[in-house]
Structure formats: C-alpha cells, structure tokens
Amino acid sequence: MKELLQVNGLVKAFGQAQAVKGISFHIQEGRCTALLGPNGAGKTTTIRMLTGLLKPTAGSIQFHGLRAGEDRRSLLGYLPQSPAFHNWMSGMEYVVYAGRLCGLSPAEAKQRAKELLERVGLAEAAKRRIGGYSGGMKQRLGLAQALVHRPKLLVMDEPVSALDPIGRREVLGLLKELKSETTVLFSTHVLHDAEELCDDVIIIRSGQVALQGALPQIRSEHRRPIIELKLEEHAPSLEWAAGFEQRTSADERLSATIEEIERQGTMLRLTVKDMDKARQALTEELAKEKVRFSRLEAGYSSLEDLFMKVVGE
C-alpha cells in the first residue's frame, strides 16, 4: 500500500486560540478515511489547510508523487459543506469551467463534464441554471466539479450534514461507489456515516488526534465486554446500586473483574475485565440483595461507546 499524504504537526492559531493543536496523520492510497469529531473539534480548519485555503501556523503537508514545482491543488478535489457556485451558470457550464481551470482541453473538459453529470445523476438538469438546484443537487454537482480532473485525493467537508434525509441517501450512495475509484478523505461528526463508508478513521477532539487507525482494528482493539443492568423504580434496589458502585472500587474481588461502572438513573453499565467472573459475581449480588431488575444484558461495547468516550472527555 502506498502512502499518498503525510501530515505532520499541523497547527492553526487564530489569534490566541488554537483551533488545531498539532495534528499528524497519513493517508494511504486507495483508502477512504473519515476525519471524525464533534463540532468545533477543528475538522474544517484541518481540511481547509489541506486544500490550501488556510495557511497553517506550523506543520507540514506532504503529498507523495508530487513532481517538483507542481501545484498541490492539481492533485486535490474539494467539496465544501455547502458549495457555492455561480447561480447564473448551468450545471454543465460550471463543470466545464472547473475542468478548464484544472488544465483540461475544451474537448476533454466537455467530455468529462458529460460523464460526471451523468454519473451523479444530473444529466437531466445539466442545462438548467444552478440557482434552481436543490441542496442535494448542488452537493452532487459539487462532487462532479471536484472530480473533473481525476484528483488523487477527494477531500470533503461534512458532505452530507447540510442535506435532508433524501439528499443524504443520494450522496452517501454516490460516495460508496466513488470511494473505489479514488482516495477519499472526508470530515463528519456522525459516526454512522464514517462506519458506513470508511476504512480508516481519525478521531479528533479539541484540535488534537484522539485516536486513529483502521476501523476493524479499532473496533477489535477497543471492544470491551460490558454488562447492562436496568432496575425497577424501587428504592432499596436503587440504594443497592449506589452502594455497589462505591464498593466496587474498594472491594478487591470486584475491582479485579469490573473495570468501570457508570450509573444513570435506573441504568447500570459495567465495563468488565472478565465476563464470566463478573457475571458470576453480579448475579450472586443480585440474588443476595433481592434486587429488582427489569433487564440484564451481557455484550460488547460498540464503536459508538468508544466514540462517545473518546470525544466526551
């Protein structure tokens, strides 16, 4: 697998505040990577630095396979969150214009524009003014114009978050097809979108990389056995829960099997080290204390849990 992009110690400061505090990552050719994080984590700032729209305060961005003197931008295709076109142009005119700006010949640009508009499902609307397009159509046009010069890396900033559910489906479907053709990096705050599309994730939180790697690997590495217990609204049982939570950290036998307890109302969530021992200890407790529970479930933590944990701190 070839490395396409290497980002090292990227920093962006706006005055005193640092929006991005030293982010490093690399992107392999042919992979789809999600830059995942809550709003305000510095995703957009990072992406804008990659595209050259923003100058990094410090750090380096290196493209492999860039010839000496070649413009980095010629390898990039960029789709912002809500792309702004010239409303007086038609979709076709815009993609041809974009192609010409990327150095395609007139015939080539026209050919590519036709192909791509067909591809993103805008063949019918190609001759209409962009001013009349819906949000989803504009996003698809944005994809077409970003891909016109066959970029090595397609960079997208929250490509679906401004769209209604239908537009979202359309664009996600398209991205699924496209990711096999080129390397993709996109930012999102929705874990589900990242899981659906990506091979790799880079989770960032307040301007720093919190976790990164291949999705299956992260999933298996950070998978923890958990037990969920739901209690009834029953005072002694709830008291027991509070007591149990406190005892766990003190009691050696319990803390050897249970790593962490979270209590939320009538819910008790145990992250455990050894499922069998923990299950044993817990059921004994429950029987002894006559705890009234409505549900007891053993399973594994999801990526969602991990994401919330990483991001929520």
Binding site: T51, G52, L53, D71, R73, S74, L76, Y78, P80, S82, P83, A84, F85, H86, A98, L101, C102, G103, G142, Q145, H149
Partner: peptide, 13 residues
C-alpha cells in the same frame, strides 16, 4: 463571501 471563490481557488489557479 458566498464561497464561490474558495471553489475556484482550490483548483490549480
């Protein structure tokens, strides 16, 4: 202000 410029300026122009 509209963002139309950023779409042009990410191209090798």
């Amino acid at each position: 202000n509209s963002g139309a410029a950023s779409l042009v300026l990410v191209k090798p122009v």
